[in-house]
Design a protein around this nucleic acid. Sequence first.
DNA 1: AAACCATGCAACCGCCAGTAG
DNA 2: CCTACTGGCGGTTGCATGGTT
Length: 335
Amino acid sequence: MGRQSCCYKQKLRKGLWSPEEDEKLLRHITKYGHGCWSSIPKQAGLQRCGKSCRLRWINYLRPDLKRGTFSQEEENLIIELHAVLGNRYIHIHIHSHIYICFFFFFLLEFLWRILGFSRFSIRWSQIAARLPGRTDNEIKNLWNSCLKKKLKQKGIDPVTHKPLSEVENGEGNGSNKPSLVGHHPIHQYTSPPPPPPKLSSNWFNPEFSPPMTASYGPLYYGTTTGGSANNTTWGLVQTQTEEEEEETKWTELLNSPLLMAAALQNQTPQSYYNIEIKSETCYLTNSSSSSSSSNDMWWPQTQQQQLPLQHEPLQNPDICGKDMQTLTAAAFGHI
DNA sequence: AAACCATGCAACCGCCAGTAG
DNA sequence: CCTACTGGCGGTTGCATGGTT
């Protein structure tokens, strides 16, 4: 057997939380904030491990949680974000020498998986960060229990987001580029820069069918210099640009795959960066400095109101880019 | 009415990264 | 540098509930 859980070691309670335990935890965190999770159970008089307390708080007791069923828009957003964040790959049209890089990358990834070290998992937390009031656990459950089925009913493979027929055929026609993300609507964009993607009801619209063909360059964003301040446009990198320029964008994309997600919501990269993923931590830390009223504590009006303007990348950068960089670098002996 | 099955959801487990000492 | 600890995350499990046979 593997190692025992922390609860076992400390002979702590497990299983469902009683209303009394909830009350204790809620009262304690409301009064003192959570601080160090491992010390919370003792301070709050709970026979639970810190991890359990944290989970209970994040998934159930947090006051900003939105309970109830998911709206159609939320479901659509989850599906679209899953297509981008769920598959931690990027489908990009690139020059051949970069394909070589890809080859090594996928070779390594293949070996990685054989050895059971796969790290390419779905980014539920990042999806949840884009759905205020929803937890990653909630979204994960929704996906596993409901959305996967809905997609299958629509003839879409929930893993690749491609049509099931194409997946069943093994994509063996040779004409396919190394398509790893699937046919997300984002791939439909062609120059000139298209209107930003709308979070429409595409996926459950009976008339919607995923795009079957695509020839496209890397997704990019750009801000027009003239005119209104935030004129961000989304489009595709022209593949005939200089190699250096392309590689720069390629690197940018690898470093910031979430920019793609930002595109889905018609957000400028800057506004994207303003979104704090670790929201509950933010509330608590911000509260200590900014809260003034005793009862309101630090509960935010909305996440975005609470957040200070940040012009630096996320504190919690997506690992995908890091993984790809690391593996790619490893493939070329840079490590 | 009872047994069985499917579903949704809360919670746990184990791994990993960051960090303090 | 090494180690231990902690928080965070994704995958999985197990239970409660409702529906079906």
